[in-house]
Each structure stands twice: as structure tokens, then as C-alpha cells.
Design a protein around this nucleic acid. Structure first.
Length: 517
RNA sequence: GCGGUCAUAGUGUAGUGGUUAGCACGCAAGGUUCCCAACCUUGCAACCCGGGUUCGAAUCCCGGUGACCGCACCA
């Protein structure tokens, strides 16, 4: 399915749509509809179960979305997110002033005021890199962060967080107490982050407001040794930075053991690559041959990242591999900077009496873009198994990610609707999500459920009334089995529970395996 | 941000100066059928926004907004 078809279907079925359509739309902003909200919540819950569930010492917090200026100054976002931009007066091309200065032989344009940069550009007679005209505009700051007037006077500055991670770092001292002064411990955050992207594009991929799920693990690099051996033989496709420099574009599968023993990666790093890989493959159901890790080189990665690998997934709708998550080894950069910025010593003393600033391993996950990927990879229009019938569109979402667990359909509307309502209500009382489908032919109702990924449908017919049994239809195979009504809730419930991480190599999960009926 | 292409019911589209703005799917009501988008009847629903040209603009021009594709950007 291409990107435009996917977007059309998502708009039509209430998954998501551009924000403020009434006023012509707002670039880079999307609203989730009822189906999208449900899937997103399920996806976030699956992430929590898998990542925060890695250790009893990992905890979810919900820090503020607004950061005072001092925070982003210390974190480096104020300096690094606020590039000076110049426009060419002849061709209109926008260029980064610091890049132009660098090319002109000025070692570091960083930290200069706009006026100082303007003078330097003039002195060096810097020309537009595209058309060569010497007509560059006055440098103006272009900040990727949304600035806010904070407080009644509006004189205090604050910013919408450009990443959720900062809130976790700020919470470190308090969490050190909450986590009973033990390393390692982890902080998970799911929430919105905001970036004033120059050119938001590609649906949910480059948004100005987006949801991140991030796990920050604080640890002593000499003592952090997760048990990677059970996953030693798990093969993960990886494209290393040195291989890319040598011209290779193909990821090569290597085992976790190989990554540790030959690849020079710390065991804790390789372990979390494997955890993220298995989440994509086993929980989200992405085909293994469409997943890879891409190591960022020194130029591409932020300077504080010692190791940076993006988890990428190949999507037809966006024409190639796209970043879905990442593993960043950030060293002690964050706590050191916030220690300096706040004037507070953020080093800790461990139970073994060791004194250190904890290091951070960050495992990030883009919620919106993965929701898009779930549509790209699991939603397809295919020929009907019955000749002469129109093709059907099926979203083969894993059942624990489905917006609704089960549809309830009265076979004959006049005769079976009241029973259907009653059954639907009972299932809801038991905590299962249901969707009543009353209008149109039975086939049409199944088709509607297929399209939004509802994995099971209960059909109420004459036998339901007389015998107390219903048919349970499987979305993927269309097969039906008949079961006593009283057994239905118990049979369906396991399918609503996302898997938790367990040691071992794992295995790909077919969408609805966990519902065994 | 630059360049190109484009913008018509919920979705996909037809319409190149005067149309009751057409079609398909959809949705709703009823009938029929009674386990996979069938059929019949009826109904719902659109010219992105703002200027301009013209007797008259969905159609031509300008500006805005948004989308797609390339370039640039993506700590």
C-alpha cells in the first residue's frame, strides 16, 4: 500500500487525520481518531510491558512538557537547536551560517551572535553555495524548539521539550531516592515532544508534535551486565558505520555474541539492541528481513552519543528504511551537564562505596511512526479467497494491538440484536473491548471489522438463542468455530495481553497467535 | 525554506468561462437475503481560503494555506 492510499484509509476509518482541517490544515500536526487512539494506547501499553517490564527497578514517570530555559541551556539544546540561518537574496536558498563559515575557514562559528556572524560572512565575502551570489541576508536564528513566554510578565523564557528524555534526567536525583539508591535503575517516559521542523513530511514521520516512548537506564559502566547470553545466538542485521564508510549499503546479520566479542560493543549495549529488535519482530510483528540497525557515524550522531544505532524498518509507503527507534549510549553527558547547569553535584555513591556520575543508556521508540509502520506492514488489500467477490482489506494487527478485541454481529438484525447488545455489554463488564456491528449485510460488517484490524467477531444466530453457542470468526483466515457463549470471555482474554520480555532468542509472533480459538 | 505538480461530497474521481456540478464507493432509512463488501427503493453529502478579471469563475490571474515529488534541513 502506498503512502497516499494508507493516509486515505486512515482518514476514512478514523485512525488519524491532519489537524485543523477546517482551517486548511496545519503542517506537521495530526489528530488521532477513535481507532487511532485505541491502537496508540495499546501500542504504548505493549511498550511499557516490554521495556519498563525489563526490570523491577525500571519505573514510568510523567514529567512536565515545558522546560525552563536554564534546562535547555544546560542540555545543549539552546545552542545546538538554534542554528543561524541566512537566505540568499538572489535564489532564496537557505543555508546554515555556521556551515558557510566553516567552509570559509572560520574554525568555529558556534556561540557567536548574529551580528558577529554577519560581519564574518561579509569579511570573508561568503557567497551563496547554490547560485554564487554575494547577497546573503542578515543571519537569523532558527530554533527547532518552540519557545514560550512563561509567567505573567512574559519575560521568563521556557520551551516545549524537544525530547522526553530531559524530564527523566531532571528527575534523576529524586528517582535515586525512590529507587533506593541502587544502580542500575531505569526511567520510562511516554509523552509528547515538540520540534518546529522546517519541513514536516511523510505523514506521521516528521511531525511537529509527536509521541516518544523512551527508557533511560542509569548505570555504572563497570557493573552493568545484563544477561545477554540467552540471546547470544539471536541474529540481528546490522550495518556498521565503518562498513558504510567502505561503501556497503547492506546490513549483515550477526549474532549478539558476534556483536559483543568481535563487534566491540559493550554487552549492555548489544543486549538492548537485541531487546529492541525482538520488540519490533516479536511484539509488533515486523518481518525480520525488513528490520535492521544502522550505526550512525561521527558526523551524523550527536557528539555526546558514544554509540548510536537506529532501528530501521523498510516501508513500502515511504520508499525504504525508516528510523523507528534507537539505542544511544550517552555516557555521563546528561547528568554532568545538568550537574553543572544547576550547580548541584549529581554524582552518587553506590552501595559498594563507589563514587560516580551514572552513565545513561537510552532506548527510544517513536510511537506515531511505529503506528504508521503497523499500518504499512500489516494492512493490505488482497484478493478474496472466494472467486467473484471483491478484494478485501485486512489489517493483520497483533490482537493485543487491535483497537477493539472483538466485534459482535447479529446475523438477522431484527431477531438477534437485543441478544448481541446484551452479550457485548457482558463482555465489556469483563473488561474486554467490543464493537457492535448492526448495519449492512453480514459480509459488509465482517469487512469493516477486518479493515480496522479487529481480530475476532462473534456472530449471534438462531442457535445462539436456542443452544447458547456463538460462532467466533478469525479475521485472518475467516474460519469460524462454534463455542458456548459462557466460554467466550475466557477464550478471548489472553489475546488482549501484550507479551513481556523473557530471556532467549524469542520467535516471530504471528498476529493473533495468542488467541487460541 | 527553494523548485516542480496539485487541491471538486466521508473516500476516489469527471467536469477548461454559462451544467439542476456528473459518476463510483461510502453512509443513513426501508425492503429482500440470512454467514462473508449481493440486489431493489429512497435519502445524505463537495468546488481549500482571500482578493482580482468578467455580464457571469469550480474553470482565468494574484496571494495565502495544505498535500505530493526532488533539493536543503532533520542537536
Amino acid at each position: 500500500m502506498n503512502g497516499e492510499e494508507l493516509m486515505a484509509l486512515c482518514k476514512r476509518r478514523g485512525v488519524f487525520w491532519p489537524s485543523a482541517e477546517l482551517y486548511g490544515g496545519a503542517q506537521g500536526l495530526y489528530d488521532y481518531g477513535p481507532v487511532g487512539v485505541a491502537i496508540k494506547k495499546r501500542l504504548e501499553e505493549a511498550w511499557v510491558q516490554w521495556f519498563v517490564g525489563l526490570s523491577p527497578d525500571y519505573h514510568l514517570i510523567d514529567p512536565a512538557e515545558i522546560l525552563p530555559e536554564a534546562v535547555v541551556r544546560a542540555s545543549g539544546h539552546l545552542a545546538n537547536f538554534a542554528d543561524l540561518e541566512v537566505l540568499c537574496g538572489q535564489c532564496g536558498t537557505a543555508s546554515r551560517a555556521d556551515h558557510l563559515l566553516e567552509e570559509a575557514g572560520v574554525a568555529s562559528g558556534e556561540g557567536l551572535r548574529p551580528e558577529e556572524v554577519r560581519i564574518l560572512l561579509e569579511e570573508r565575502k561568503v557567497r551563496c553555495p547554490r547560485c554564487g551570489a554575494e547577497k546573503l541576508s542578515v543571519p537569523t536564528p532558527f530554533n527547532l524548539m518552540f519557545g514560550l513566554d512563561f509567567g505573567a510578565t512574559g519575560r521568563e523564557r521556557a520551551y516545549l521539550r524537544p525530547e522526553t528524555a530531559q524530564g527523566a534526567y531532571l528527575a534523576f536525583p529524586r528517582m535515586w531516592e525512590v529507587a533506593r539508591k541502587q544502580l542500575p535503575f531505569g526511567i520510562g517516559v511516554i509523552g509528547k515532544a515538540y520540534r518546529n521542523e522546517i519541513a514536516p513530511r511523510q505523514g506521521l514521520f516528521r511531525m511537529r508534535a509527536f509521541t516518544q516512548a523512551e527508557l533511560q537506564i542509569f548505570f555504572d559502566p563497570e557493573e552493568f551486565l545484563p544477561e545477554w547470553e540467552p540471546m547470544a545466538d539471536l541474529a540481528i542485521p546490522v550495518l556498521r558505520a565503518d562498513e558504510r564508510a567502505a561503501g556497503s549499503q547492506e546490513a549483515r546479520p550477526r549474532t549478539v555474541r558476534e556483536l559483543v566479542e568481535k563487534g566491540g560493543l559493550p554487552p549492555f549495549y548489544a543486549f538492548h539492541m537485541a531487546v529492541l529488535f525482538r520488540f519490533a519482530r516479536d511484539v509488533l510483528g515486523y518481518p525480520a528481513d525488513r528490520i535492521r540497525f544502522l550505526e550512525k557515524n561521527e558526523k551524523e550522531r550527536a557528539f555526546y552519543n558514544r554509540i548510536h544505532m537506529d532501528l530501521e524498518v523498510k516501508l513500502d509507503s515511504l520508499g525504504g528504511f525508516k528510523e523507528m527507534g534507537a539505542v544511544h549510549y550517552r555516557g555521563d553527558y546528561d547528568l554532568t551537564r545538568h550537574g553543572e547547569g544547576s550547580g548541584t553535584d549529581l554524582s552518587v555513591t553506590t552501595s559498594r562505596g563507589k563514587h560516580l556520575v551514572p552513565h545513561v543508556l537510552e532506548v527510544t521508540f517513536g510511537v506515531d511512526r511505529n503506528l504508521w509502520a503497523l499500518a504499512d506492514l500489516h494492512l493490505a488489500t488482497e484478493p478474496s479467497p472466494d472467486p467473484g467477490e471483491p478484494p478485501r482489506t485486512v489489517w493483520r494487527l497483533p490482537s493485543y494491538l487491535a483497537p477493539t478485541l472483538v466485534g459482535v454481529i447479529p446475523l438477522i438484525r431484527k431477531e438477534h440484536t437485543s441478544f448481541a447488545r446484551e452479550l457485548s455489554g457482558k463482555l465489556r463488564d469483563e473488561g474486554l473491548s467490543t464493537a457492535l456491528e448492526l448495519t449492512g449485510s453480514v459480509g459488509k460488517r465482517y469487512a469493516r471489522l477486518d479493515e480496522i484490524g479487529v481480530p475476532r467477531a462473534l456472530t449471534i444466530d438462531a442457535e445462539t438463542i436456542t443452544q447458547g453457542t456463538v460462532t467466533i470468526r478469525d479475521r485472518d483466515t475467516r474460519a469460524q468455530v462454534r463455542r458456548p457463549v459462557i466460554e467466550v470471555a475466557a477464550a478471548l482474554r489472553p489475546g488482549s495481553i501484550p507479551p513481556r520480555f523473557s530471556a532467549g532468542a524469542g520467535e516471530p509472533t504471528p498476529g493473533t497467535r495468542s488467541i487460541s480459538i
